[in-house]
Simulated scan of single mutants.
Amino acid sequence: MASEELIEGLEGWFQPWNEHDLAARPLVKIGGTYTIYTGRLTDAEVATLGSLLLRLPGARPGSMGFFSDPSGNPWLEASFEPSGITIEGQVSPEQWASWDTAFRAAVEEAKLPRFPA
């Protein structure tokens, strides 16, 4: 089956889940996947992706977490999945905007392969 058939219906390269809620306040609830070909990345591309995640706003050294304070709020976690980079958490609208913008720019600059949208 061609890759295009596997992703029919995608409208962009960030796919929010049902619980993705940008209207929630004061923290927005984030849940979604950036459709990057994680299973097809070369070792160099995996290293690049890992490196760029460490440079994103709110990065916690040695983890795939962002923004959390000692009480655990706000928080954002990233994980490698077959469908791409999955993001889940609750952060301020400003934190989400800065993280999302920085992640997209870094992936574009690194020219990491994504599912076509």
Rank of each mutant, 00 (worst) to 15 (best):
M1N: 13
M1E: 12
I7W: 14
E8M: 12
E8T: 10
E11C: 15
W13I: 08
P16I: 05
P16K: 07
P16A: 04
E19S: 09
E19I: 10
H20R: 07
D21P: 06
D21H: 00
V28N: 03
K29P: 06
G32A: 05
G32Y: 06
T33R: 01
T33D: 02
Y34E: 05
T35M: 03
I36K: 12
I36W: 14
G39T: 12
R40W: 04
L41N: 05
T42P: 14
A44V: 05
E45S: 02
A47I: 02
L49M: 13
S51K: 04
L54Q: 06
R55T: 14
L56N: 04
G58F: 08
S63R: 10
F67A: 06
D69M: 10
D69T: 15
E77A: 13
S79W: 02
S79V: 14
S79G: 07
T86Y: 04
G89M: 07
V91Y: 00
P93M: 06
E94M: 13
A97L: 13
A97N: 08
T101I: 13
R104Y: 05
A105Y: 12
E109R: 15
E109Y: 14
K111M: 12
L112H: 09
L112R: 07
P113A: 02
F115L: 00
P116K: 09
